[in-house]
């Protein structure tokens, strides 16, 4: 069988773990997450001639995975778990504490327009400009969305009442 190019092989090795974490954040299902990562790299491999700059490969792969998740959801509404259900097969590092459950549920309650930029910032560590490019938004819009996402999360998790008395933005 053929070998992958060294560059692509390095991408697979380096980025599979974080793409898996991003996929888990989207679908909460380890099997679906693995399938999403695999399909993402397959699509990327088929289109690798369109990749002009290895530095942008990370953002490109995240974007592909986002689209794959959306397509999967549109096609067959896969077994995207309710965040309070634990995966059938134990996932290493999957926090099963009450606090984690509460946080996961709150995150899932955010509308996609707020949740998506927040996850790209937290999981991927992307800048607002990069997130803007990936989502087709202006950087200032991304800033507003992540701000509102956190504000809503804090409200769902129960803000300190003193904060509201101090004139929250």
């Amino acid at each position: 069988m053929g070998k992958l190019s060294k560059q692509f092989d390095a991408l697979v090795g380096a980025l599979s773990p974080e793409l898996y974490r991003y996929a888990m954040g989207l679908c909460h299902n380890p099997d679906v997450a693995q399938d999403l990562v695999q399909e993402t790299f397959l699509r990327a491999w088929r289109s690798q001639e369109t990749l002009r700059d290895v530095k942008t490969a990370r953002a490109w792969l995240y974007t592909i995975l986002r689209h794959e998740h959306a397509r999967l959801y549109e096609r067959q509404r896969p077994d995207v778990r309710d965040p309070h259900e634990l995966p059938d097969v134990p996932v290493r590092g999957y926090d099963t504490s009450t606090e984690a459950f509460t946080l996961r549920r709150a995150l899932q309650r955010l509308e996609p327009q707020y949740r998506e930029p927040l996850m790209l910032q937290v999981v991927g560590g992307f800048s607002c400009k990069e997130i803007g490019n990936m989502l087709g938004l202006k950087p200032n819009t991304v800033l507003t969305r992540v701000f509102r996402a956190r504000k809503m999360l804090h409200a769902m998790l129960g803000e300190d009442k003193q904060e509201t008395a101090h004139e929250m933005p």
């Binding site: 992958l4 599979s16 898996y20």
Partner: peptide, 28 residues
């Protein structure tokens, strides 16, 4: 807490290998 939650899940150790296999099969 949010970062720990989202960045913690570990993929199965052979995930990268599975991806490479899938691509090789597609090449074939």
């Amino acid at each position: 807490a949010l970062r720990n939650l989202l960045r913690a899940p570990e993929p199965p150790p052979e995930l990268a290998e599975r991806v490479r296999l899938a691509i090789r099969m597609e090449q074939q």
